[in-house]
Design a protein around this nucleic acid. Structure first.
Length: 477
RNA sequence: CGGGGUGUAGCGCAGACCGGUAGCGCACCGCGUUUGGGACGCGGGGGUCGGCGGUUCAAGUCCGCCCACCCCGACCA
């Protein structure tokens, strides 16, 4: 059986990514341009992401609901910036049941408008507030250039939509959900992120202020991994979302929205993956451990399989896969599961049966380096500890990579050099034209203005004007 | 939409310049031997050569048009 090598990450990162997604059976291309099929292994990962996020949403008082895919075209036009931002990428339905529609229907690119319409209907009094609804759905944006998980015509996500009685409460909600995303990214996906505010030109179409968590991929490019928007009263005014306060005065609501998509799967792949394939973060991995049986004959087979049954019952609190496929050598299975990124492999052969051991192999330490032989007794605790350790170790590795590749250049010449292969953390004036010039000259854009700011002031890295904030510039996906 | 590339078995490719029985590796099916880091032998099955049209006795191959996908740019979670 020949080795089918992936292209190496350093040699061709993009090719490595595309082939890995296909080979690991996370997703496949669909017959429609720019659309993807999420295969069971990819969807299992998404389900674990959903569950980790959903628990956090519920814990912060949100409830789930479902809104329709179709939105009256005119709704999109109610908020000026929103329509300007989204009109180039709308899919529009003009025929239904063979008849030309009186009003075209937009396939939702996001649900702020229809949410606005419904909230206006539901909210009458301060007693109705806050409204804290989340949607798990898919949306369609007609992208010019697509890439599996990172940017597809249709993608799956959640969108939270909340309405509040005060500006402070809406701001607090926006920041709270940003924290939820950061907590999820770091503690579930082992992906270190920078929390920050978006620049004027990078903010969501229709938002007052947008925030994001930004992650560094293995090629040092940045990926916006989740966003939270303070919509101010923009949508409340456009859709007349109003309530009577305690003084019987009519007030506009303050609304927010926040989303995290299947794009995050792309982040997991590009942050943790190596030349052998995926490395799934243990808390989200579809399979946290895979058991590979080893035997030479039927006799050994039955002994090994019997032993495995007791191992499985010891590990019943974990997501464990038994690879009992016939006709494949253990070596083949080792490589196969490494490609698919299963964090921990448990090998069990005749030697282990007679000695009451199993052989553990950590995915974050490829090859024989990551192997240890441990007693079957007490395996539950050992496996739990190893999985925690893998989480910590891949997080630290990613954090170190982020730190090593984030630089503080002193002048623009240094800046140009830095953003070729990393992030620049610099003083910036905040001016959109200055930002556009930097993008034109270096392909780097503002990723975010970190919430965590040093004290003091400086001068803009590009135009030299006074600057009060430091900003992350990077080439982005 | 501009620039580049690719379409031949499920996947990866050769064949094309020079027209003449459609091939190779992997995967798949059967039998046997194997199995602690991508096993081996033998025997099989599988193709409107992206589509349409043209040239020719004859087209995967030459000519024209079209389509799809990928990569690089402009737009974006």
């Amino acid at each position: 059986m020949a080795k089918e090598q992936l292209p190496s990450r350093s040699q061709d990162f993009s090719d490595w990514y595309n082939r890995l997604v296909l080979r690991a059976e996370l997703a496949d291309y669909s017959p429609v341009r720019g659309c993807m099929v999420v295969r069971p292994y990819g969807w299992a990962l998404w389900e674990n992401i959903q569950s980790a996020l959903d628990q956090r949403f519920k814990a912060t008082g949100h409830v789930n609901a479902a809104f329709p895919v179709f939105i009256p075209f005119s709704f999109m036009e109610r908020e000026r910036e929103h329509v300007e931002g989204f009109s180039p990428e709308l899919a529009v339905v003009t025929i239904g049941g063979g008849e030309e529609l009186e009003e075209p229907l937009v396939v939702r690119p996001t649900s702020e408008t229809i949410i606005g319409h419904m909230y206006a209907k539901w909210i009458k009094s301060y007693r109705d507030l806050p409204v804290l609804i989340n949607l798990w759905n898919s949306v369609v944006r007609w992208e010019m250039r697509t890439k599996l998980f990172l940017r597809t015509t249709e993608f799956f996500w959640q969108e939270g939509h909340t309405a509040h009685g005060t500006e402070d409460e809406a701001r607090a909600e926006t920041l709270q959900m940003l924290d939820v995303y950061a907590d999820f990214a770091e503690n579930e996906a082992a992906v270190p992120v920078i929390k920050g505010r978006k620049s004027e030109s990078e903010k969501f179409a229709g938002a007052k202020t947008s925030y994001s968590i930004e992650a560094m991929m293995g090629d040092t490019r940045a990926l916006q991994a989740g966003t939270s928007h303070n919509l101010g009263q923009n949508f409340a005014r456009a859709f007349e979302i109003r309530y009577l306060d305690q003084e019987n005065e009519l007030q506009y609501c303050w609304t927010t929205s926040w989303g995290l998509s299947t794009r995050f799967i792309g982040a997991i792949i590009m942050v943790h993956g190596d030349d052998q394939g995926l490395i799934m973060p243990p808390r989200l991995a579809p399979y946290q451990a895979v058991i590979v049986p080893i035997f030479r004959n039927d006799d050994e087979r039955s002994q090994v399989m019997e032993n495995i049954a007791s191992i499985q019952s010891q590990l019943s609190n974990l997501r464990v896969k038994l690879d009992d496929r016939d006709g494949l050598t253990p070596g083949y299975k080792f490589n196969d599961w490494e490609l698919r990124g299963v964090p921990l492999r448990i090998e069990l052969g005749p030697k282990d049966v007679s000695e009451g051991t199993v052989t553990l192999a950590r995915r974050d330490q490829p090859g024989k380096k990551g192997k240890t032989v441990v007693k079957q007794e007490g395996l539950t605790d050992v496996v739990g500890d190893v999985l925690d350790d893998i989480h910590a170790s891949i997080f630290q590795r990613a954090q170190a990579f982020l730190d090593e590749n984030t630089h503080q250049p002193e002048d623009y010449a240094g800046f140009i050099e830095v953003v070729r292969s990393g992030w620049a953390d610099v003083w910036w004036c905040g001016d959109s034209e200055c930002e556009a010039e930097i993008k034109e000259e270096t392909k780097a854009t503002t990723r975010c203005i970190p919430l965590d700011q040093p004290s003091g002031e400086g001068t803009c890295i590009h135009c030299g004007q006074p600057a009060s904030e430091r900003v992350i510039f990077a080439r982005a996906y």
